[in-house]
Design a protein around this nucleic acid. Structure first.
Length: 894
RNA sequence: GGUCGCGUGGCGCAGCGGGAGCGCAGGUGCCUUACAAGCACAAGGUCGGGGGUUCAAAUCCCUCCGCGACCACCA
């Protein structure tokens, strides 16, 4: 606190060492146990406030999205802690199946190791090792931000307890028929060699071709010897088992029921009609490959076609296709097309853009692939999940995301949960090959309960999101004690879930479904969907674009407080926010302003004695009134989850009201020759306002506020982190319209005199005489504040009254209800003053005319709310008055 | 194809029914002892175009234009 952060100019700027100031505070909070379950106090003592952090991937590093999201959560929970709730912010990481396995694979590959060679156990050990080496990094970065999570009870989606919860849900759902096994078309990643869920597939537009291929008919029909199919994937023709046409397509009516002799493979396949086919597209004939296209699969089911798998798990052509066997998809495409051309069956090729599915992890083109997989039947789950959002039990902020959520649920299809990976929760389904017994079980089943033979466990692991969906309750004792877990009773449902919109379906909706099914409760009451942080160019941040910003670097440059405040200041209800580093810099400056204001207060405490704040002067009453308004605004913003509003309100109050005016007002009262009683009152009021401001700022800027709080002359809590939140209801008594009016006039008068001085290039050091004319009531209010005006505007003689005359040779500024004359005689040439006043006269005349017109409109008078009419009349009178006074000043200048 | 978001001073954004605001950049003057990461002052916009509702529109409705996102997807 003692050091000046910004050295006087001339000296070299000494960078403030944020980390050195922040880390000890963090450790103090942690060591005092404030990050763990806090006991609660006051009116909310019996209520809990819980947040579960969206668990970052174990191997991840902090990015700006986390930084924003975690700041939001920390602000919420710190405020709740100060409000006296029993708080708990559950921290942990996600094992992130594919993501981690991909990384470890790559890591091993660099050492020339293939995971298939070392086997499952060794590979899992490699993952664990990787996790031990890199796993803690993101948690320490979260700590560097100052997040008040429960670090002593860190969760992991593959911890023994969590795994038990996963097995339990799988087993329960299996027994309820919610989890089932089936041979279906799934999105297959030939690189990761696993199935992935529909929402893990990303569509990307690609330039491609539409090949028109002739398929000869086994027997000519009506003189026709062949039909032409159009396809974007000629290589799949090896697996064709039918050709479909639209039922309403007259052109092909007589072909339905005919047989095609499939070229190359020489297979006889039927021509049939199906409603799926659009006669308008391509040739109107669709080759049907049930094993490699979901729509074809559906047609295959409807028409009882066989399903021929052309590709193996790495998307190479399987045995039995002659020279094509062993070719990659791409090679096979070329070879098939070449063959058709050689056979004279390639009718034409046209360019065709289409969207192609890619793996969201490795971006390999996905192959729709027929395989045996596990699924979650969603029909019984989604109903409750939709209901609790539709009826407002769970609220989205901003509200419109509720519709996105509901739409997602409405379109939901069964969820493929099995993954052909090694890193993850192995599916707890046990088979007895001897007698055919099979069952799911929470605990391992080594021998068959029917015949006693050894069993084997399913090889596949579960989708990462299958475990993530249990996060809000599996972290709270559910695995062992189910819904009787005391933690759940105390801390469930949680209050807030904050996330970006991209995992609305993948995670948010699934948590609701799982929680409703497993606990019978909602998992959280409020869902905050914060905007996605974009790069400075408005595009998503990415390595390849080079527009990424590292939050760790931001914290090093601007402090954790600066980054936090700056991020929240940019939050709006929109879907995206373009990252603006200047906002972070401005917030760092704001933190510095807070530090300096506190320094001012604390260095002027000579003779200070603790005591109740007491607003004596209008300036005191004004700042108390503004403080009361601020608390109300901040509370309202938190309750609406409007973080941009909240931070801007704090910024405005602290900088533009407290620092720009109240502290300036205080200087004279704190001087050595000031009245000791008044000085003490001023000190107490400064301490009080600073203290309240620190509390309001603390959830967003925890470090600087705590650091200052420790220096405060009186404290009602050992640390600010658990100090009571300002009480808006109690403060409301300080609202004072008259004091606000008085100080507004002071500010206006000071501004007018400074402006006149600046306009004519007069030094701030030259004292000027001035006069203020106001209504009798205002003059009475203002008269008491003459000293403030004199000291802030460097005024010599100051006259205030209802009937003061404009001094000769003065510049006039006409404000709201007051007129300010700055004496410039002997200092300036009045030509410029005349021009300025003439310009103002024109502007005022136009404004008055506009209002006159409005007020003479009968429609307005008849229909507008009476207080609006009154307001406009008052405004008109005021402007007319101003105009008259400007004109008078002008006349006087001659 | 469907749904949603955004177009406001040079730049980045707030405001979303009663006379246009903030930050930054730029201009002028200040080392005024809390702060030059600062202070003071001034300048800068017909709120994307058009139409409508209303006494009143940046704000509500329609339409067009331009960005962007999500969902679905026709071989």
């Amino acid at each position: 606190m003692a050091d000046t952060q910004a050295a006087p100019s001339g000296d070299k700027l000494v960078a403030y060492d944020f980390a050195a100031h922040e880390r000890p505070l963090f450790e103090a909070w942690r060591d005092a146990g404030y990050f763990q379950r806090t006991p609660g106090f006051g009116e909310h003592a019996a209520d809990s406030y819980t947040i579960v952090i969206p668990p970052p991937n174990v191997t991840g590093v902090l990015h700006l999205g986390h930084a924003l999201n975690d700041t939001i959560q920390d602000a919420c929970i710190r405020r709740a802690r100060m409000q006296g709730y029993q708080t708990r912010w559950i921290l942990g990481t996600d094992h992130a199946g594919i993501a981690t396995q991909t990384k470890v694979d790559k890591h091993l590959a660099e050492q020339g190791i293939n995971r298939r060679e070392i086997g499952r156990e060794a590979f899992i050990e490699a993952c664990q090792e990787w996790r031990r080496d890199y796993g803690g990094r993101i948690v320490s970065q979260i700590a560097a931000m100052g997040c008040s999570c429960d670090y002593a009870d860190e969760q992991f989606t593959m911890s023994p307890e969590f795994s038990r919860a996963v097995r339990r849900v799988f087993t329960d759902w299996y027994h309820e028929g919610i989890v089932y096994r089936g041979k279906r078309i799934v999105n297959w990643c030939p690189h990761c060699t696993t199935a992935i869920a529909d929402d893990e597939a990303e569509y990307e537009d690609e330039k491609g071709h539409l090949w028109h291929l002739r398929y000869p008919l086994a027997e000519p029909v009506g003189g026709r010897e062949y039909l032409v199919v159009a396809t974007t994937r000629p290589e799949t023709m090896l697996g064709d088992t039918g050709v479909a046409v639209s039922p309403s397509d007259e052109r092909y009516r007589d072909l339905v029921g005919a047989t095609v002799r499939l070229p190359i493979v020489d297979r006889e396949i039927p021509v049939f009609s199906d409603f799926y086919v659009d006669a308008e597209f391509g040739t109107g004939c669709v080759k049907v490959t049930p094993a490699h296209d979901p729509n074809d699969f559906a047609m295959g089911e409807r028409h009882d076609l066989s399903k021929i798998n052309v590709f193996d798990e790495t998307a190479h052509v399987v045995e039995g296709f002659g020279k094509f066997t062993g070719m990659s998809r791409e090679e096979a495409r070329e070879a098939v097309v070449a063959e058709f051309e050689a056979l004279g069956l390639l009718e034409s090729v046209e360019d065709h853009d289409h969207s192609v599915m890619h793996c969201y992890r490795c971006h390999t083109t996905l192959e729709p692939w027929l395989s045996e997989q596990w699924f979650v039947a969603v029909d019984s789950l989604k109903e409750a999940a939709a209901r609790v959002v539709a009826d407002g039990t769970i609220k989205f902020h901003p509200e419109r995301w509720a519709q996105v959520y509901l739409d997602w649920l409405a379109n939901l299809k069964d969820w493929c949960i099995s993954r052909q990976l090694w890193w993850g929760h192995q599916i707890p389904l046990y088979y007895c090959d001897a007698c055919g017994w099979q069952d799911a079980s929470v605990d391992p089943v080594d021998t068959c309960p029917v015949c006693g033979a050894p069993t084997r466990q399913d090889e596949d692991v579960l989708d990462t999101w299958f475990s993530s969906q249990l996060w809000p309750f599996a972290t709270q004792g559910w695995a062992e004690q189910g819904n009787d877990a005391p933690e759940l009773a105390a801390y469930y449902p949680t209050q807030v879930l904050s996330t970006a919109r991209d995992i609305m379906g993948l995670w948010v909706a699934r948590m609701v479904m799982a929680s409703e099914s497993c606990t019978g409760q909602i998992p959280f009451e409020n869902v905050i969907i914060h905007p996605t942080v974009m790069g400075a160019d408005g595009k998503p941040m990415s390595k390849s674009r080079g527009n990424g910003v590292d939050p760790v670097q931001l914290m090093a440059d601007y402090g954790a407080d600066g980054m936090r405040f700056g991020l929240l200041m940019q939050v709006t209800g929109a879907q995206a926010m373009r990252f603006d580093e200047q906002k972070i810099e401005g917030s760092r400056n704001f933190a510095n302003k807070i530090r300096n204001a506190a320094r001012f207060v604390l260095m002027h405490l000579d003779g200070y004695e603790p005591g109740a704040p007491e607003p004596l002067t209008p300036a005191d009453k004004w700042i108390f009134s503004r403080l009361a308004a601020l608390v109300e605004a901040v509370d309202a913003a938190y309750e609406g989850y409007e973080f941009g509003e909240m931070t801007r309100a704090l910024y405005r109050f602290f900088w533009n009201e407290l620092c720009d005016w109240y502290i300036e007002f205080s200087k004279a009262r704190l001087a050595d020759d000031a009245d000791p009683a008044d000085r003490l009152a001023c000190q107490r009021n400064l301490v009080f306002v600073l203290d309240q401001a620190l509390r309001l700022l603390h959830p967003v800027m925890p470090f600087i506020t705590e650091e200052i709080y420790q220096e405060m002359p009186e404290k009602d809590a050992p640390m600010l982190i658990i100090a009571p939140w300002p009480d808006a209801r109690a403060l409301a008594a300080w609202r004072d319209g008259e004091a606000e009016r008085a100080i507004e006039m002071v500010c206006e008068a000071v501004g007018a005199i400074r402006s006149a001085r600046s306009r004519y290039g007069l030094s701030p050091k030259t004292p000027l005489d001035a006069a203020v004319k106001a209504s009798a009531a205002d003059a009475a209010l203002l008269g008491e504040q003459a000293a403030l005006i004199r000291s802030l505007a460097n005024v010599g003689e100051l006259a205030v009254g209802a009937d003061v005359a404009k001094p000769a040779g003065s510049s006039a500024a006409v404000g709201a209800g007051i007129e300010v004359y700055t004496c410039l005689a002997g200092h300036v040439d009045f030509e410029a003053e005349r021009a300025r006043l003439a310009k103002e006269q024109a502007k005022l005349a136009a404004d008055v005319a506009k209002l006159e017109k409005k007020l003479s409109n009968p429609g307005f008078l008849a229909k507008a709310a009476p207080e609006i009419v009154a307001k406009d009349q008052a405004k008109r009178d005021e402007l007319a008055d101003k105009l008259a006074r400007v004109e008078a000043s002008l006349a006087e200048l001659g």
